[in-house]
Amino acid sequence: MEVLLITGSTIEEGRLAKGGDKFKAEYTKECAACWIATVDFVTLCSPEKVKVTSKNGKHSVVVYAKCTDSVRPGNVFMPKAIWTNVVVDPDTLSTGSPLYKGAPVKIEPTEERVLSAEDIVLKVYVRGQ
């Protein structure tokens, strides 16, 4: 399913990030999440986890799915953290700041494992898996 990705802060994300708890399971639970509108969530058969893939198909990340009425159908929200940035478009339109909000991505249900912040760095960035 093609959707527009909006990223942003949540209070818990701020609390855990500023508290230096980026390696805690609680941080993964809060931030490795994709908030999906109810209609889209049901269309995807209410998955526990979704795989979010960038527009060019080059990068993808597995996160927990969360049903919400805070976004409109066709939009999804992810708390700003290392997971969402895996799929954020590195093109800055010559401004220096990547497209954190409103970039098209693809979401699909998955059974794959959600990686921790450390594993994203070691497995995705260092070893390019």
Partner: peptide, 24 residues
């Protein structure tokens, strides 16, 4: 806070980090 392509390259080059807590 970096998109994947940039993060991958940052992991490749020599990096010095000054920080108060362990982080990615």
């Amino acid at each position: 806070n970096l998109p994947a392509d940039c993060a991958t390259y940052l992991a490749e080059i020599p990096l010095i980090c000054l920080d108060i807590v362990p982080c990615p």
